[in-house]
């Protein structure tokens, strides 16, 4: 039925809910052997994309395939892909074990598998309790156990860390990494880069239903441009001097400082000395990933693509 490659391919995927464009011409692929983060702010279209991939939502346009096949052609989908989705339900009167046995039967795996995955996610002692009495984190663990029932090659998780305690998050992190290291595919969504930063190798960042960045996390880190923030005695003189040396990306910040990109602080200090400008303060800015993520995904409801530093001014950055 499917090629067994473990590849997830999303191509020109579009979804329109009435007048709302939830996903717009989205394309990316996820390869086996790595954990890929699927990131975007609230309402960016993450859940919609994952549900289209899993055959739960019909795309308006484009395709989403797993192992080269659309979901409904996988044959035994429960053995190929396991999923934890937002707002996935449980019958409150069913015990955790019964819940898993229902789906173990559907997937066609032995009942013993139910107890095994319960133990795996740390719910072994709650197996006979009714799910209605479970905490949010326990439900999230049970959802994960359900996803693992068929020992799938591909894992798709929508905000799986929701409700998990720090210990649970740490466990999930190592679990997903080792899962990927077995040559399987893991796609995990989040609206917080920091939450998955230590887990993922690749990232797909979307905003307003469109891809903003897609590649290794390392590459994202390196793409950030260092800036030097300097407070000179004469702003204009220093800016002039730098421009004369060919430095073009100079910006004046609201607090009177200059932000200079593309050179290091030593270069700026030397220029200032040559121009006879005193420096009252100088520092190299550390742009963290979260801020970069913010820059990539901001303006969801603003309707324009913001210039990177303009955004920071608006944010009262100092």
């Amino acid at each position: 039925m499917h090629d067994g490659s473990g590849l997830i391919a999303v191509q020109n995927l579009t979804k329109q809910f009435g007048s709302v464009t939830a996903v717009q011409n989205l394309s990316f692929t996820v390869s086996p052997g790595s954990v890929t983060g699927f990131l975007g702010p609230n309402g960016a279209g993450k859940t919609t994309t994952l549900r289209m991939l899993l055959g739960l939502v019909k795309p308006t346009g484009g395709t989403a395939t797993i192992n080269g096949r659309p979901f409904h052609q996988l044959g035994q989908p429960g053995r190929v892909v396991g999923a934890v989705l937002e707002a996935q339900g449980f019958h409150p009167a069913r015990s955790a074990r019964d819940h898993l046995r229902v789906y173990a039967a559907a997937i066609g795996v032995p009942d013993a598998q139910a107890d095994q995955v319960l133990g795996l996610v740390g719910l072994g002692t709650a197996a006979d309790r009714k799910v209605g009495g479970f905490s949010l984190g326990m439900k999230q663990r049970l959802a994960l156990a359900t996803a693992l029932l068929g020992d799938p090659q591909v894992l798709v998780l929508d905000e799986p860390a929701n409700g998990l305690d720090p210990e649970g998050i740490a466990w999930l992190r190592t679990f997903l990494q080792s899962y990927a290291r077995m040559g399987r595919t893991v796609l995990i969504s989040s609206h917080l880069l920091a939450e998955v930063e230590q887990t993922v190798d690749q990232v797909v960042i979307i905003s307003r239903g469109q891809t903003m960045f897609y590649g290794p996390l390392e590459q994202l880190r390196q793409s950030q441009q260092q800036r030097v923030l300097v407070q000179p005695s004469d702003v204009n003189a220093l800016a002039m001097a730098l421009r004369n040396e060919g430095v073009q990306t100079i910006e004046q910040l609201p607090d009177g400082r200059l932000a200079v990109s593309g050179v290091d602080s030593k270069h700026v200090a030397d220029s200032a000395l040559r121009a006879g400008v005193s420096i009252y303060g100088i520092q190299e800015e550390q742009v963290d990933l979260e801020r970069l993520f913010f820059q990539l995904t901001s303006g969801q409801y603003a309707g324009y693509a913001p210039a990177p530093y303009q955004q920071q001014q608006q944010g009262g950055w100092a």
């Binding site: 739960l56 429960g78 989705l85 996935q88 789906y103 559907a106 068929g150």
Partner: peptide, 10 residues
């Protein structure tokens, strides 16, 4: 109860 999601996934 939204269990239909898992039903269709399996």
């Amino acid at each position: 109860r939204r269990t239909i999601t898992t039903t269709f996934l399996t």
